[in-house]
Simulated assay, not measured.
Amino acid sequence: MTLTLPTFEASTAPLARRNPVAKLAAALLFSAPLIATLDPLTPTIALAVELAVLPLFGMRYGTLFRRAWPLVLAAGGIVITLVMFAAERTGATVATLGPFEVTTGVLITALGMVLRVFAIALPGIIVFATTDPTDLADALVQNVRAPARFAIGALAAFRLVPLLGQEWQMLSLARRARGIDAGRSPVARVKLFVSTAFALLVGAIRRGTRLAVAMDARGFDAGTPRTYARRQVFGRADAALMIGATLVSAAALTTSVLTGLFRPIIG
């Protein structure tokens, strides 16, 4: 639940002070070219750049690791899936795991995909961790002319994310107090997880319905012009951030092409 929650230790960092829309656009522009290739070099360069500029966002490496650890699980799933179901097993055989043959081609493909997952996900984590959700909603309305109903609704949903983790704990403790425990049985654990997740989903839908009615009752859906308590200015530094992100991403992709390692995802 804490993957993209904001941390306010970065309020004075130079890049953390940039316009929220500029930071979000820069993350998208930086990550988009990484989808075009399967080679490991492009995401490696992107990761090196992301880790190098992390102090400019005022975020500690330990904080980033604590927030990004679920990506390690995703990476493990990718490796296992490719080892078991890869269609092309080119290159020399590294190991044989029963009926599965692990080749250098499979390992290179797995490495490229794992690095892409990290390189694409980390910019989003960094941006959301260093951006106040209220500032982001204000910037979307003021700078992008997004509908206020959408921006404020997204802000409300983002604010409710921490409650999901708390409710999961409460549901688990309540069931344990009633004697509902999976014990050591993996099947019982899966059933308990599914039932708890369903209860959490029902509670989230009910809370969302009540919140929507309350927001409508307070005039959030009114068509009258709105005023803004905090102005979000989009300046030259914000445009420079977006241009810089685009150029660095293009440079990483160009380096991959010039070294002959570029592997297009299509074709």
Rank of each mutant, 00 (worst) to 15 (best):
V21S: 11
A239Y: 11
V161Y: 09
R159P: 01
D132K: 12
A251K: 01
T255S: 14
T7I: 06
A32G: 07
L200Q: 08
L38F: 09
L247R: 03
V114I: 10
L247M: 11
F234G: 10
A199R: 10
Q142F: 02
L261R: 12
D138W: 04
T255Y: 09
A154S: 06
A27R: 07
T227F: 03
V144N: 05
T227R: 12
Q142K: 04
Q142R: 04
L107F: 10
T37Q: 11
G267L: 11
D39R: 12
A174V: 07
G165Q: 10
R145N: 04
T104H: 05
T109P: 00
S195V: 12
V233H: 15
R207Q: 07
F220K: 00
T131E: 04
F150I: 13
R116K: 13
P33K: 11
V144L: 15
F118D: 07
G58T: 08
R236M: 11
A245N: 10
D181T: 13
L34F: 10
F198P: 02
L136D: 01
V190G: 00
V213R: 02
A245G: 15
T259N: 01
I266N: 00
E88M: 02
R116M: 02
F234M: 12
G112F: 04
I45D: 02
L258W: 13
D138F: 05
R17C: 07
T81C: 10
R184F: 13
A239C: 13
F193L: 15
